[in-house]
């Protein structure tokens, strides 16, 4: 049944593309949406997470735990970066862009000097499954599930926990949260750490599927930015729908004309969105709700 295979094949491509966009953008979106910080070092947090995951996995640690180590390492590095650099630049978005760009260069070049041009990689786990006439990587299905689980987890974290309520209060009226007893610096630091940890987890999750090089962050950061620009500042109203819409465009164009067309489709989409919806999908939704 070629029709059936085509449909399943497309859904697989679509799910894979959407999961990738959501995973690589969610950390960037949290840091941008909650703190107004454009973090150009996002790709290097992904790289750091991937390197940590692979290094730990090679010591014999099971992959899920190794990914967790990658996330924690990136999160800790994020909190240190917030403490040393970002904190001094709140309210100065252009300075923050330059500073995080500098950090990004230092991190990728530093990795190149210290660890060489590439790290031997680990193989993709879980093998493949046949559906109809075609076979699919099981691990890719796991990634789709993890993307959905991370969105759900973030939703619960920011809506139903004490930390989430205090973080949203801090983001909405920082001086008022502070005078109600909220340690807003700690909230910013933890929020940045969570964004960085998500980047690290993304790197760890994709590490078994790709070659690890110090500049690998570049492969993620374009799509992360495209998703955040299209989605706007809200992770749930923005990043998730943007990941789905862009995943559809990318997988559709890729199926039709190949990888390059998929990339072109993404960039055309982002240009159109900037023209029509300057505050992204979530800007539109928030305006309509208000």
């Amino acid at each position: 049944m070629p029709g059936f295979d085509a449909v399943i094949g497309f859904l697989y491509q679509f799910g894979d593309a959407a999961a990738f966009l959501v995973l690589c953008a969610s950390g960037l979106a949290i840091i941008f949406g909650m703190m107004g910080v454009i973090n150009l070092a996002h790709g290097e947090f992904i790289m750091g997470g991937a390197y940590t995951t692979v290094t730990v996995a090679k010591l014999g640690v099971p992959l899920p735990l190794a990914v967790l180590c990658g996330a924690l390492a990136a999160g800790a590095a994020g909190m240190v970066l917030e403490r040393l650099v970002i904190r001094h630049l709140y309210g100065r978005p252009l300075d923050t862009i330059v500073a995080t760009w500098g950090v990004s260069l230092i991190a990728s070049q530093g990795t190149l000097i210290l660890l060489g041009p590439s790290l031997s990689d680990i193989s993709t786990p879980l093998g493949s499954v046949e559906i109809g006439a075609l076979s699919y990587s099981v691990y890719r299905f796991v990634l789709m599930g993890v993307a959905a689980a991370i969105l759900l987890g973030l939703y619960v974290l920011f809506n139903f926990t004490r930390f989430g309520v205090l973080a949203r209060a801090t983001i909405q009226v920082p001086h008022m949260a502070e005078t109600l007893g909220v340690d807003t610096r700690l909230i910013y630091s933890l929020t940045f750490g969570i964004g960085a940890a998500l980047a690290g987890a993304t790197g760890g999750l994709y590490a078994p599927t790709m070659t690890l090089v110090p500049t690998m962050g570049v492969q993620f950061i374009t799509e992360a930015f495209v998703t955040v620009v299209v989605g706007g500042g809200d992770v749930f109203l923005g990043t998730a729908p943007a990941g789905i819409v862009l995943g559809f465009i990318k997988s559709g164009m890729t199926t039709w004309e190949g990888q390059l067309a998929g990339q072109i489709g993404l960039l055309v989409a982002v240009i159109l969105v900037i023209r029509v919806l300057p505050r992204g999908i979530s800007g539109l939704m928030l305006r309509e709700r208000a």
Binding site: V165, R168, A169, Q172, V173, M176, A177, L286
Partner: peptide, 11 residues
Amino acid sequence: DVFPRMSVEEN
């Protein structure tokens, strides 16, 4: 200075 996009109870 209420937190505008949070519910009364969340405030």
